[in-house]
């Protein structure tokens, strides 16, 4: 390991301590504050810390607390709306759905942020992420009448706020997934029908 003979930087020295504290907290909660469980808990914390340092040595992103609060609030009320929406569609006798696959051009760059966007989108009303290829997020839309583009843009903005990253100017629009494919939610060949 290059630089292993040098002194550890402050951040490097802090990392194992931070992770060990995190896993100790998890153990405390999982064991429901049972003190006698620490005979198993101490080895667990050690092994988990070593495994975590090996699997993800460095974390190149950080979370902004204020952004995290705004994201959590957005996530909470949107996922409630998403649950109500799909539950009511499922039990109504007419089964009001009009699904389609669409592609959204992502404005957000970093990989971890894209994964969070994809996961968040799946809990929003009417959208389900179904793959990320380059700058394009494939989504399955339950009903074309839903404001999917605005919703996905909002998700991206909240995730960017959470991690404190900038969005690209281009993108943020929904379109057909491939050239020549069936139009997507009022875009493309839909009008020619």
């Amino acid at each position: 390991m290059p630089g292993s003979t040098q002194l550890l930087s402050a951040a490097q020295a802090r990392r194992p301590v931070e992770r060990a504290l995190l896993f100790a907290g998890v153990w405390f909660v999982v064991a429901e504050a049972d003190l006698s469980s620490w005979t198993f808990g101490v080895p667990f914390v050690l092994v988990a810390t070593i495994a975590s340092l090996r699997l993800t040595p460095a974390r190149e992103w950080r979370i902004r607390p204020a952004g995290a609060l705004r994201y959590a609030w957005f996530f909470a009320h949107q996922s409630v709306a998403g649950g109500f929406d799909v539950a009511l569609r499922a039990i109504r006798p007419s089964l009001p759905i009009d699904p389609k696959l669409v592609c959204y051009r992502l404005r957000i760059g970093p990989e971890h942020a894209r994964v969070l966007v994809a996961d968040t989108v799946s809990l929003l009303p009417g959208t389900l992420s179904a793959g990320i290829e380059e700058d394009s997020l494939t989504m399955h839309v339950l009903d074309c009448g839903l404001p999917v583009e605005e919703g996905t843009r909002l998700v991206e903005e909240h995730v960017a706020d959470l991690f404190g990253i900038e969005l690209a100017e281009e993108g943020g629009t929904i379109g057909p997934c491939e050239v020549g494919s069936v139009g997507t939610c009022g875009i493309g060949s839909e009008g020619a029908r």
Binding site: G82, G83, A90, L95, I97, L123, H140
Partner: peptide
């Protein structure tokens, strides 16, 4: 929803969103 929806994608909508709520 898992029972009534017509394909795997729509069923996933029902499963992920309704069950999490």
């Amino acid at each position: 929803g898992v029972l009534r929806f017509p394909d795997v994608y729509t069923r996933l909508h029902a499963l992920t969103k309704a069950d999490n709520l």
